[in-house]
């Protein structure tokens, strides 16, 4: 196993983690501010990818598609917040789970109705094709480096937004005391819609960026959704910092586990069996990690104070 290969795998883990962060940030924000479990967050990811693919196919520009994905996901988020989600804030988690589970069914079949059953085409923009040289002689796709950069930029942006702006102040106030900020004259309904749309837009952005790497198809959001939940639970629900660290931890564990475990098993087993055993354990690894962390820190690594 050479050094460039190892560096490449670490970058892969980082890129995967950053993508998870875009999903997890929205989820954890929505949970932290409104106390809502949103299973339909994966559907917003899918909406972003489909919007990007459709607009890119119509206009020939990935960048217009990217803008469309942000707009479409934010709009879809705002619409479901106003029609459905806002009736759920006062309900218990069970009702939220069922309602957003129903939203998944509606989004998935609705998307299939509009776009048909076959996967859509979406490619990376010409500007970001090709590979960059890594120290040590390796090569790494520019597009994936760009994804990492976008993820870091979003993390910084959120940090500034929440820590330094008026909206962020209201969001933080909303997290700690809902009645109080209502009393201060903040329109809490609008604030919630804004936060939900922001989370949705981040999911849509992730969907569009990932859509260019994989296939744009119905149901693409569900595996990501489960992983994003794992991330926010590991990180501590409601904590953006926890979501960031959780994402990177999960991304690295998943990627390096898939890569290293078969090699480890190969020390004691024949190659073909080792590959199978390693892959089996690798697919369970994230959940094992999560169970271990929760066994020792029942509220995640960076639990919010509430």
């Amino acid at each position: 196993m050479s050094l460039p290969l190892f560096i490449e795998q670490i970058l892969n883990g980082l890129q995967f983690g950053v993508m998870l962060f875009l999903m997890a940030a929205g989820l954890t924000l929505i949970f932290g501010v409104m106390g809502l479990i949103n299973l339909a967050h994966g559907s917003l990811f899918m909406v972003g990818a489909f919007a990007c693919a459709a607009v890119a196919a119509a206009t020939g520009s990935f960048w217009l598609g990217l803008a469309a994905s942000l707009a479409a996901a934010a709009m879809a988020g705002a619409v479901i917040e106003i029609l459905v989600i806002r009736r759920l804030y006062e309900r218990d988690h069970l009702d939220q789970v069922l309602a957003t589970f129903a939203l998944i069914l509606i989004f998935s079949e609705g998307t299939r109705w509009v776009f048909g059953s076959f996967p859509l085409y979406l490619d990376i923009p010409p500007l970001l094709t090709g590979a960059a040289s890594l120290p040590g002689g390796g090569q790494y796709p520019v597009y994936r480096l760009a994804v990492i950069a976008v993820g870091i930029a979003v993390a910084l942006g959120l940090y500034v937004l929440i820590g330094r702006t008026r909206l962020g102040m209201r969001i933080r106030a909303g997290e700690s005391d809902r009645e109080m900020i209502g009393a201060l004259g903040v329109d809490i309904g609008t604030l919630y819609t804004l936060v939900f749309a922001l989370g949705a837009a981040l999911a849509g952005l992730a969907g569009a960026m990932v859509g260019a790497l994989q296939s744009v198809q119905v149901g693409m959001g569900e595996p990501v959704l489960i992983l994003a939940f794992v991330v926010i639970v590991i990180g501590g629900i409601g904590s953006i910092k926890g979501a960031l660290l959780g994402s990177i931890l999960v991304g690295l564990t998943e990627t390096l586990g898939r890569f290293l475990l078969p090699h480890l098993f190969a020390l004691i087993l024949p190659a073909s069996e080792a590959a199978g055993m390693g892959a089996a354990l690798a697919s369970m690894l994230i959940y094992i990690l999560m169970a271990l962390i929760l066994a020792f820190r029942p509220r995640g690594l960076f639990a919010a104070s509430t």
Partner: peptide
């Protein structure tokens, strides 16, 4: 799992089932 509660309990039971 029962060491946790609330959403954490929801998610840790999911994690075991996924394993």
């Amino acid at each position: 799992s029962l060491r946790t509660s609330g959403v954490y309990f929801i998610m840790i039971t999911l994690a075991f089932a996924q394993m």
